[in-house]
Amino acid sequence: MQQSMTGYGRDERTSQNLRIKTEIRALNSKFLDFSPRIPKELADKEAEIRNLITDELKRGKVMLSIELELDDDSNLEVQVDEARFKAYFNRFNSLSEKVNSQSSDLVKLALQAPDVIKQQEIDPESLPWKDIKAGIKGAIDQCLDFRKQEGNTLTSKLSDYISNIRGGLKSVEENDASRTDNIRTRLQKNLDEIKDRVQVDENRFEQELIFYLERLDISEEKVRLKQHLDYFDEVLQKEDFAGKKLGFISQEIGREINTIGSKANHAEIQRTVVMMKDELEKIKEQNLNIV
């Protein structure tokens, strides 16, 4: 099953006196580009967190955010540095008097000043790592579900595009059946028109005609294109995390289509080739979204 590289997952849980909020966002990228935003208390766990992400999400630009908040019911005392508060208040009040302002917000300003209210720190030794890890896995699972849903949509689109190219190949085969006969007839007609004025070596003409038709022959390209289309379908339906491989197969499909177009010398085949190229561009665009 194919997965999109775009995904989102969120987990929120409570453990001990902590609220643990985990969020994962994933976008397109050629490789795994992991950007964690975690509390300093989890710095020693970053390697383990990275391994969790790498093992499950494989590829894409992955942004992880973990927030640890003390629970409102933790009955923790608010710590205020009264000396700092008084110093800030007196300074603000002095400035206020100098400009003849009677501001009533001086207490609020003093409380919001740096280091007046001391944030309750979380003890790294008491962190419930087992629950934090479970939260990360919960967010990963949600992200994977999102990716799989998007992947199903992408798979359906890619199958349709390949089917359209396959239909184009069938049209090419139908037109190719009469193409060489038409070229031979046209050249013979042109030759007949000048026979009375120019001496023609029939054997040499036949040799040149065969050489010319061989240069226009697209039999091998048709066979290889069909093989590439079959292989694309097989990988799409049976292999996981096949974005890069599908990209390589798309390149091979493009080579055969281009060669058919350059050799065709046939208006209807050329129009079909343009259609197939358009479908292939859609495939390449969607391949960029697949893990």
Rank of each mutant, 00 (worst) to 15 (best):
L70P: 08
N90I: 01
D55N: 14
I53L: 13
D33N: 13
K118N: 08
L109I: 07
R19F: 07
K98D: 10
E56R: 15
I38H: 10
K58H: 15
A47C: 06
V99H: 05
E69K: 09
V116M: 08
Q102I: 04
V80G: 05
L109N: 10
T14Q: 11
N90L: 03
S103M: 02
S101F: 05
A26G: 14
E82H: 02
L57M: 14
K40I: 04
N100K: 14
V80C: 08
L27N: 04
S65Y: 14
K58G: 09
R84V: 06
S94I: 01
Y88T: 08
F89K: 11
L109V: 08
P114C: 02
L111K: 13
E56V: 07
R19M: 07
N93L: 09
D73G: 15
Q112G: 10
S15D: 07
V78T: 14
K86R: 10
R25V: 04
L68S: 03
Q102L: 09
S103D: 12
R37H: 12
N100A: 13
E48P: 00
R10N: 12
V99S: 06
R19C: 04
Q112M: 14
E77F: 01
F89A: 04
K40A: 07
E23D: 11
D11R: 02
R91W: 08
T22W: 10
L95A: 08
T22A: 08
L106H: 01
S104K: 13
N17F: 03
E69F: 03
A43Q: 12
Q102H: 11
V62R: 15
N28E: 07
L18S: 01
R37W: 04
I38S: 10
Q102T: 12
E82L: 05
E67K: 07
V80W: 11
I20M: 04
K61C: 00
S104V: 06
A87L: 03
I20S: 03
K118F: 09
Q102K: 07
N100I: 04
T14F: 07
K30Y: 13
N51L: 05
R19K: 14
A47T: 14
L18P: 07
V99Q: 03
E67T: 09
V99D: 05
E12A: 11
E97F: 04
A47L: 13
R50L: 02
D33R: 15
K61Q: 12
D33T: 08
R25E: 13
L76R: 15
E67F: 10
L32M: 11
Y88M: 06
V78N: 11
N90C: 00
E46L: 01
Q112I: 06
V99W: 09
R91T: 10
V62T: 12
D44E: 06
A26P: 08
K40P: 00
K30M: 00
T22V: 15
R10M: 01
I49H: 10
L68K: 02
D33Q: 12
D73E: 11
R84S: 11
S103L: 04
D44R: 15
N90K: 13
L95S: 06
N17R: 02
D44W: 03
S74E: 05
S15W: 02
S15V: 04
L32H: 13
D71F: 01
V80F: 11
R37A: 01
